[in-house]
Amino acid sequence: MFILTKIADLVQIAPEDFGKQSHQAIEDNINAKYANKVVQKIGLFVCLWDILWTSEGLIGQGDGYANVNVEFRMVVFRPFQGEVILARIANQSREGISLATAFFHDIFIPFSELPDDTEFDPREQTWVWKVKGGDEGEGGDEGEAAEEGEGAEMYFDNNEVVRFQVVSEEWHDQAPSGPQESADQPASELLPPYKITGSMKAAGLGCTIWWD
């Protein structure tokens, strides 16, 4: 789920930060620049892991900033394809289920990746997995989930913790667009910079409470 990425960059320390210890001033500037940012084809940067090397600080002319060349490693959130991770159900629609973790909110499970015999309840705005009894359908673990071998309805309730498998990832460039392009595409339709598509079809996936 998490990887370490090595980066070399120029860190500029403002005069008001000269009172800090050097390592603290550098760490604060790196986290301010990278933490909670998505970098294309790398992932969501979470926080600084460690500093590998720094140069001596050189004061720039005119602005008084101390310029320091730094090599460091960042903790990056980027699950690999096929990895199984946990998240919570944020909301649901006929298209599928949106999930979120404590720090990442662009996870989507399309309806085609939900268990077989899963239907959308328009009144409750919830997906329901209709488990067949042990004498019909697939049986096995699903039969055990049903009470006394009879069918059961397993609800994907909002805020429930679910287990899902990563299927694919999507990257969308967030470079600024021109005035005409911005007018043609409302802000509500802008695509997230990094999106994960998952699946809950395999046994053991879905709401964790089902398998306790």
Rank of each mutant, 00 (worst) to 15 (best):
C207D: 07
A145R: 15
L190M: 14
C207S: 04
Q180H: 01
H105A: 05
L114S: 03
W129N: 00
Q40S: 04
L52R: 13
R73V: 03
P15F: 12
G134M: 03
P193K: 10
G137K: 01
K41H: 14
F72L: 09
S55V: 11
I97W: 04
G43C: 09
G206T: 11
P179K: 00
F111C: 10
F108S: 10
V162T: 10
P122M: 13
F77A: 02
D121W: 08
D116Q: 12
I89N: 10
D121E: 10
K6T: 13
D184W: 00
N29P: 07
T126S: 13
F103Y: 06
G151W: 01
Q40D: 05
K130E: 00
I26F: 06
Q61S: 14
L4K: 15
V46R: 09
G96E: 09
A152W: 01
I30N: 08
D157Q: 09
F18N: 12
F156L: 15
S112P: 01
L44V: 06
G133C: 11
E147H: 03
D28F: 09
H172L: 13
P192G: 11
S177F: 00
E56L: 13
E147M: 12
W49N: 15
A187E: 00
T5E: 02
E113W: 07
K201D: 02
A152I: 05
D28L: 11
D116H: 08
F156I: 12
E189G: 01
V166C: 12
F77K: 11
F103N: 07
A203P: 15
G96S: 07
A87R: 08
E136W: 06
Y194C: 00
S188I: 01
L99H: 06
E113P: 05
I85R: 08
S22M: 07
K33L: 11
R163I: 02
S93I: 03
G43F: 06
K33I: 07
C47T: 15
N67A: 14
T101G: 09
W49I: 08
A35E: 13
R88S: 05
